[in-house]
Simulated assay, not measured.
Amino acid sequence: MSNMSQSLSSSSPFSSFKPSSHPPHESKQPQQTQIFREYIGAKFKNVKFSDVPINPNVEFHFILSFAIDYDTSSSPTNRKFNVFWDSDNLSPSQVSSIKNQHSNVRVALSLGGDTVNSVYAYFKPSSMDSWVSNAVSSLTSIIQQYNLDGIDINYEHFSADPDTFSECIGRLITTLKNNGVISFASIAPFDDDQVQSHYLALWKSYGDLIDYVNFQFYGYDQGTTVSQFINYFKTQSSNYNGGKVLASFISDGSRGLSPENGFFTACDRLKSEQQLHGIFVWSADDSKEIGFRYEEQSQNLLATPH
């Protein structure tokens, strides 16, 4: 199992897309709630939920990475999803344990990702109806088995047009929410023409069902400056108009604006403008090697009144 692409093509800030005409969302949480989210389990580095520091004054989401509609031979299954995260260390009993220990913790699963067994994981439905039916069935089973709270949409490769993606994913989220299977949903786009065209189509039609936008700001070039980061953030907040766009960094500092080069300065500035809805990190697997110091710093920043 491979991680999300660290060699994302970085294009210029998205000027070609018009902001969504979707009406602004009503806040799903009290205004003061700060969200911290972290992807976990894709790299099989034996990281456990209990390794990660959890500040009681934020809403903390672990995002299991990934559930993928492929089988163990790396073949598509028409959306019968299987677990491809480190389930030995991140098992149903460990989900229950961390949630019992911390009342502010929720756990989600992420769909898709970059690759499965070094092969690109494509969004590739044979038909919309069968995709939605199989996805709802297989994901409901996994979510209930693991006692999960939400899903994250993280497809990065597509063998279907944006409208098909929008309808399949939109109907999936709608059904899971209406059935009471999940309480929140997020999307994880990055600044790439094909990726953005698919996620913006989904946003335009189903944005009111999407609670968080985990925009991969670490998809931009390494060496991104604070002012560039803030411009990127405001551009994407305009694209995903009315959404809770979260700031983000990659633990190994390989791309985007790293914590060492001003990420927290940028977050402080956004917070002072009341634009910081939360922070997410890719990923706990890499953060383990550096003692999760940036996770602590992120949560402290979010939990401190400005």
Rank of each mutant, 00 (worst) to 15 (best):
D211I: 01
S238L: 04
H157Q: 15
N117S: 12
D252I: 07
D193V: 14
D51A: 14
G242L: 00
A108E: 12
D71E: 13
G242V: 03
W203K: 06
A185D: 11
F215K: 00
L270M: 07
N100C: 00
E289I: 04
F14C: 07
S91P: 08
A185C: 13
G113P: 14
S5G: 10
S138N: 08
S87F: 10
V132D: 07
G170N: 15
Q6A: 06
I63E: 10
P30C: 06
S251K: 04
Q31L: 02
S166Q: 07
H102G: 11
L209P: 01
S11H: 07
S126M: 10
A42W: 06
D71S: 13
T77H: 05
D268N: 15
P259N: 13
S248D: 03
S15C: 10
F158S: 13
S2M: 06
T72A: 14
P19L: 09
D285P: 07
N100S: 10
R293W: 04
N214H: 11
A247D: 00
T77G: 09
Y146C: 07
M4I: 11
S248V: 02
A201N: 06
G291Y: 05
L109R: 05
P162Q: 14
Y199P: 03
P76H: 13
S97P: 03
Y206I: 00
S5M: 04
S272K: 05
G150Q: 09
S103W: 01
V107H: 07
S254H: 08
E295C: 05
Q297V: 04
Y206T: 00
D221K: 14
F229I: 09
G207F: 03
D114Q: 12
D88L: 11
S130V: 07
G262S: 14
V107T: 13
V107G: 05
H25F: 13
Q34P: 01
D149N: 12
A266R: 14
M1K: 02
S238D: 09
C267V: 08
T140R: 09
P259Y: 12
L8D: 10
A303L: 01
Q29T: 11
F36A: 09
N57L: 02
D221A: 13
S2C: 03
H157E: 15
S283V: 01
S258Q: 15
L200D: 05
E289P: 01
L8C: 11
F123A: 04
S96V: 11
S91F: 09
